[in-house]
């Protein structure tokens, strides 16, 4: 699954930069610059939902087999503290997600540095960072939904998750989140605390 996501990230990256190259060839670099600087067009909008999808899929692929095959009990019975078991499991999933994002982000920055000035690069970073944070948050929220033992609560969590994730996508305007970007990780923290909430409910055998 991770390899598939990496391949999709790579293909998306190639697509974005081939699209940019074509725009440079057809419209000219000056025009592309003009569109970006003066008309506030963002060139990498196609990237917008990829981190969200990647985070969601990582969470689902990691935890759905555990839930369907009832292996979560097996995992929690390992002779470690439950805190350590959960921390290690989440660190693995979120670590893989973050590594994937770092790889894609580094490739994006490398490509940007060849063609654009620092101001545009910084604006691009502020634009895409909320999307990556959305991906990491989606991983935690998906995990929480999977671990939650009751379907009713899962539905409630799903609605809360949609609401929380929507915050990252309110505006597609370049660098729209610049002033509040420092506060966005708080939503990710809510995602983490939701996982802890679900684990506690699973451990106590809540059914409603």
């Amino acid at each position: 699954m991770v390899i598939s996501l990496l391949a999709v990230a790579l293909m998306l990256h190639l697509y974005l930069f081939s699209k940019m190259g074509r725009a440079f060839r057809i419209a000219g670099k000056e025009h592309v610059w003009d569109v970006i600087v003066n008309r506030n067009q963002f060139f990498f909008s196609d990237l917008r939902f990829f981190p969200l999808l990647a985070g969601t899929l990582t969470g689902l692929f990691q935890f759905i087999p555990e839930i369907i095959q009832n292996r979560l009990k097996l995992m929690l019975h390992l002779p470690l503290t439950e805190k350590r078991i959960i921390t290690c499991t989440l660190a693995y999933g979120s670590g893989v997600t973050i590594l994937l994002f770092l790889f894609q982000f580094a490739a994006l920055l490398t490509g940007l540095q060849i063609h654009f000035a620092n101001e545009i690069i910084i604006s691009t970073v502020y634009t895409v960072l909320p999307w990556y944070l959305a991906g990491i948050t989606a991983y935690f929220l998906c995990t929480a939904i999977c671990i939650e033992p009751s379907w009713k609560h899962r539905l409630v969590l799903l609605l809360i998750s949609i609401g929380l994730l929507k915050i990252f996508f309110i505006s597609g305007f370049p660098a729209a989140y610049q002033k509040i970007i420092a506060y966005l990780p708080l939503i990710t923290l809510i995602g983490i605390s939701t996982v802890i909430h679900s684990v506690i409910r699973f451990k106590t055998g809540m059914q409603d």
């Binding site: 095959q69 009832n70 292996r71 009990k73 097996l74 002779p79 470690l80």
Partner: peptide, 24 residues
């Protein structure tokens, strides 16, 4: 039983219904 230490968990072998294991 809800708050077993790792040392006590080491002393308990658990067979879940359906012989659940890491089938992969």
């Amino acid at each position: 039983s809800g708050k077993l230490s790792p040392e006590v968990k080491q002393k308990i072998a658990l067979l879940l219904e359906g012989h659940v294991q890491y089938s992969f």
